[in-house]
């Protein structure tokens, strides 16, 4: 937009630089994210395997994975439903202990009444597992909990005479799920704790002071002040963790002994593993992968919208609301 300055000369528009500066981002984003997204939708309507890759099958892939049908369809349907179930089980099993632990620690570390010594040190140590490569963490736990007597935990238990035979930690359904949940909790509680701490520190200190003057117990303070005021950040943690849970891949995919795709444990196969499993260079089943991806996209999209609402701070919305009110008042006047 060019406007006339008082001296009559045109001012220079810098708008084109704005476009120029954001251009690389959008070109790359369209090429590597938007087009692949469209392509995923397209592929979800096409057949599986090289022979059928160019056959338009409509909603058949969705029907197969969601409803099932005759024999091949039934297998893929069961596989998909199982992967969803595994995702939920593994996510719930890691989120509940994680949130309890991090909430407890966050409250302790921000308590001005009872100061825990060495908070800075604890924060550094507890966040550390989060920074370590997930693949390596998985490898570590895999050799620690190895099926044979060579696994460190089995060796220790055998030493102490607790067990007579090595326990198959990796292959047993419950124990391997618990180990994966433990790894996830171990890796993420420090992160959640730091997020919650920043949330608690954002609460007005005078509220805590007023409560302590009124003689509130620490339990009352926690349930009546901290928890309600922590709701927004709590929600943020919950939703980002759900999105993260849908992407859970490295550890469930690699937590098995033995090589080859057949070694992947069915009771650990998450939705992300399902999608990945059907990629092959020679004869890929893009149709099933794509249909599952599309479903995951919609779930993530809904969750992402909630985070978006969180990020465009509530202040902005409050301001917008009060502006509306003001204009209403102005109208009345």
């Amino acid at each position: 937009m060019q406007s006339l300055r008082p001296n009559g000369r045109k001012s220079i528009s810098y708008a084109k630089y704005g476009y120029l500066f954001i251009l690389p981002f959008f070109i790359v984003y369209v090429f590597f994210m938007i087009y692949p997204l469209i392509n995923t939708f397209r592929l979800s309507f096409f057949g599986n395997g090289n022979a059928n890759a160019d056959t338009f099958v409509g909603l058949q892939n969705f029907k197969y994975i969601l409803v099932g049908g005759s024999r091949p369809a039934k297998a893929i349907h069961e596989e998909f439903i199982r992967s969803l179930k595994n995702t939920v089980i593994l996510w719930v099993g890691n989120f509940i202990p994680q949130i309890i632990l991090s909430l407890l620690l966050a409250v302790w570390f921000t308590d001005s009444r009872v100061k825990v010594k060495g908070t800075g040190f604890f924060k550094v140590v507890m966040y550390m597992p989060n920074i370590i490569t997930a693949t390596s963490v998985c490898g570590l736990f895999l050799i620690l909990f190895g099926n044979s007597k060579y696994g460190a935990v089995n060796a220790m238990l055998l030493d102490m005479g607790t067990i007579a035979e090595p326990f198959k930690f990796v292959n047993t359904v419950t124990s391997s799920r618990v180990i994966v949940m433990f790894i996830q909790t171990w890796m993420w509680f420090g992160n959640t704790m730091i997020l919650l701490m920043s949330g608690i520190m954002g609460i007005d200190l005078s509220l805590f002071e007023a409560a302590s003057i009124d003689g509130a117990s620490s339990g009352q303070v926690f349930f009546k002040i901290t928890l309600p005021l922590l709701k927004p950040i709590f929600l943020y943690v919950l939703i980002t963790s759900m999105i993260g849970g849908l992407q859970m891949f490295d550890i469930p995919y690699l937590f098995h002994e033995g090589s080859g795709a057949s070694a992947i444990q069915t009771h650990l196969e998450t939705a992300a593993v399902f999608v990945y499993k059907h990629f092959h260079l020679i004869d890929p089943n893009y149709g099933y992968s794509a249909a599952a991806s599309v479903l995951l996209f919609f779930i993530t999209g809904i969750l992402g919208l909630l985070v978006y609402r969180f990020n465009t701070s509530s202040d902005d919305r409050a301001a917008a609301k009060s502006n509306k009110k003001k204009s209403k008042h102005a109208g009345l006047l």
């Binding site: 994210m33 469209i38 995923t40 999608v275 990629f279 893009y286 991806s293 995951l296 993530t300 985070v307």
Partner: peptide, 24 residues
Amino acid sequence: FATTFILLVMMVPVQVVSTGFLQF
């Protein structure tokens, strides 16, 4: 529009486009 777009897509993980990405 650009700002809103970036905020909106922030949470879309690469996993959900991986099929289309790889095939491409």
